[in-house]
Structures are given as C-alpha cells and as structure tokens.
C-alpha cells in the first residue's frame, strides 16, 4: 500500500491488522508518535489524518491509503521549530517528554481551528492528551502565548 506521511509518499507492505501507530513507528521509523496505551485512552499517539487530530493506535494503517498523514516530524521544517514547539520549551510544558508529541499535535490543531479563547476551552480540548508528569498548567500557558502572539500579528488584539 502507499501512505503519504508529512508530504512524502511511502510504499510499504503491511498486514491489515497493523495500526497506523505501529506503521509509523516500526515501519517508517517515525517514532515521534508515542505508544502510551494502545487503547485510545492517553492521546500520546495523536497524529493528523487529513488535517484532523486522531489516535493512531485505533486507526488501521491500511485504512489510511490515499489519506494525508501528518506527524510531529512534519509540522515544522527540519531546521526550525513551530511556534507551539518553541512555546512548549519556554513554558516547560513537559517533563519526561513522552506525551509531548501528542500534546503538540492537538495544540497546533486547536490554535489553527480556533476555540482556544478561554482557559476552560483549552483545557477541555486538550483533555484527550494525558500528561502523567502533570505539566497541564504549563501546557495551557504555552498555548495561550501562541494564541496571543497570533492575535497580535493578525492585528486583532
């Protein structure tokens, strides 16, 4: 089958039972997406399919043929960082780092789609991404910062 991941087309032979998460991690070497539960309960495997955040552990790779996959490895140029990545570092929005890819994939989608106007909205949207180190307040702070910077640059502030 063929899969388009971060703009690159990959031809891979996979059994239908292989999850998108295992396909990315074990077959394409894209280990940024994490396996925290393999049961849809933690969000560490969050990637985008057709631009929408989904759980790669409950998605079969074979069902993603002809679909556009975006992972943490694909949201910024190789030598740069996405503003959300920078804000996560600045606000210490992670500790062990294992949930971070998923958090960022959700956060970037949230900021892109709008709906991060209040802390309550951010918290609810981001609740599908468990952080066992409990960096949640810092994650919210990072998202707020990027939101407010976006508002400033777009002249709406």
């Amino acid at each position: 089958m063929s899969m388009r991941v971060n703009g690159d087309l990959h031809e891979i032979g996979l059994e239908p039972r292989v999850s998108l998460l295992d396909a990315l991690r074990d077959h394409l070497g894209l280990t940024g997406s994490k396996k925290g539960c393999d049961q849809g309960t933690c969000g560490a495997c969050t990637v985008w399919v057709q631009g929408r955040p989904v759980l790669a552990c409950l998605t079969l790779a074979v069902a993603c043929e002809d679909r556009e996959i975006t992972t943490i490895e694909g949201i910024a140029p190789a030598d740069g960082l996405h503003p959300v990545q920078r804000a996560f570092i600045e606000h210490d929005a992670f500790q062990c780092g294992y949930c971070t890819s998923g958090q960022i994939m959700s956060a970037v989608a949230l900021l892109r789609d709008g709906g991060a106007e209040t802390d309550d909205e951010i918290a609810e949207y981001m609740s599908g991404n468990i952080c066992r180190c409990a960096a949640y307040p810092n994650i919210r702070a990072a998202i707020r910062e990027v939101r407010d910077a976006d508002l400033e640059t777009s002249g709406r502030a």
Binding site: G43, V54, L55, L58, S106
Partner: peptide, 9 residues
C-alpha cells in the same frame, strides 16, 4: 463524550 481525537474519528 470521549476526547477531541476520538470525536474526530
């Protein structure tokens, strides 16, 4: 219900 990711799926 669920989470944003699951609701998208």
């Amino acid at each position: 219900g669920a989470s944003e990711q699951l609701r998208n799926m």
